[in-house]
């Protein structure tokens, strides 16, 4: 189909959990591939593995700066993609790879890992470990509308994606972001969202405010991004019903 967008998937130092999350859209993924997206290359789900020229590329994993091939693939991804999406906590913030000190088999000298935004310009973040199938789906549909939609759909997609674009301004996030950007800023009202969002149950509510067990935190950034007081767009969220319906209709 001529009006599909082209998509690539670059896999760096990630555990394939993001790939699995993408695949966990099940029939939704097939509809996406049928109607909207032409998957040009992807190590696990496509035959072609090498970076090609595409509209949108997802990057899973952080980048090991001791691994020449990884650095080269990342740079090539940037050069050949219109939009680069950092998919998952590792690509956005380093996530669990932040704790690496090297010494592991079979590449003990691979010790230094950076979020991809430290080496290239990234356009959109999808934080979380793993990112959720529904979030990947929503961003994929919005990316399609942004590139191929009507004027109205482009506006909607822009409004939807703007907060995720703004997230790219900072490559560090962990529970500390909740402290420094929400609680310290006098914005926390104790709704409990961060507790539910945390994939490792590191957050509990103590007397109405989140308390992070920082030794458990893997630095995925889910708590901060899910928080209604990290960023909130009335224009988008007040139309939640229509947007949800549009996304579901697109996947029929």
């Amino acid at each position: 189909m001529a009006d599909k967008i082209t998509l690539g998937y670059t896999h760096l130092s990630g555990c394939t959990g993001c790939t699995v999350a993408l695949a966990d859209n099940y029939a939704g993924l097939l509809t996406l591939l049928d109607k909207y997206v032409d998957l040009k290359y992807m190590p696990t789900l496509a035959d072609a593995r090498h970076v090609q020229k595409v509209d949108v590329s997802f990057v899973e994993g952080s980048v090991c700066i001791n691994d020449k091939l990884a650095v080269q693939e990342l740079k090539e991804t940037r050069e050949k993609s219109t939009i680069v999406v950092a998919l998952g906590g590792c690509a956005c913030y380093g996530n669990i790879t932040r704790f690496s000190r090297g010494g592991q088999q079979n590449q003990p000298a691979h010790e230094a890992y950076l979020p991809i935004g430290d080496l290239i310009k990234v356009d959109v973040f999808i934080p979380g470990c793993a990112p959720t199938p529904q979030m990947i789906r929503n961003v994929a549909v919005m990316a399609y509308l942004l590139l191929k939609g009507t004027k109205e759909q482009k506006d909607l997609a822009t409004a939807f994606l703007t907060p995720l674009m703004k997230l790219t301004e900072k490559n560090e996030a962990c529970f500390c972001e909740l402290m420094t950007q929400v609680i310290n800023q006098g914005l926390c009202m104790g709704c409990g969202t961060c507790v539910a969002a945390c994939p490792v149950n590191a957050i509990t509510m103590e007397y109405g405010k989140p308390n992070g067990e920082r030794d458990l935190c893997i630095k995925c950034g889910a708590c901060y991004s899910q928080c209604p007081r990290s960023w909130f767009s009335f224009d988008v969220v007040e139309n939640y019903e229509a947007i949800n319906e549009a996304i579901m209709a697109a996947l029929q």
Partner: peptide, 25 residues
């Protein structure tokens, strides 16, 4: 059931389910 801010949180979680896998629906 929740306060207005909690309703905002619920709707944000449905539109941007960053850490809320399989919750929105």
């Amino acid at each position: 059931v929740g306060t207005p801010c909690q309703m905002q949180a619920v709707r944000k979680a449905q539109l941007y389910p960053i850490g809320m896998r399989d919750v929105g629906a």
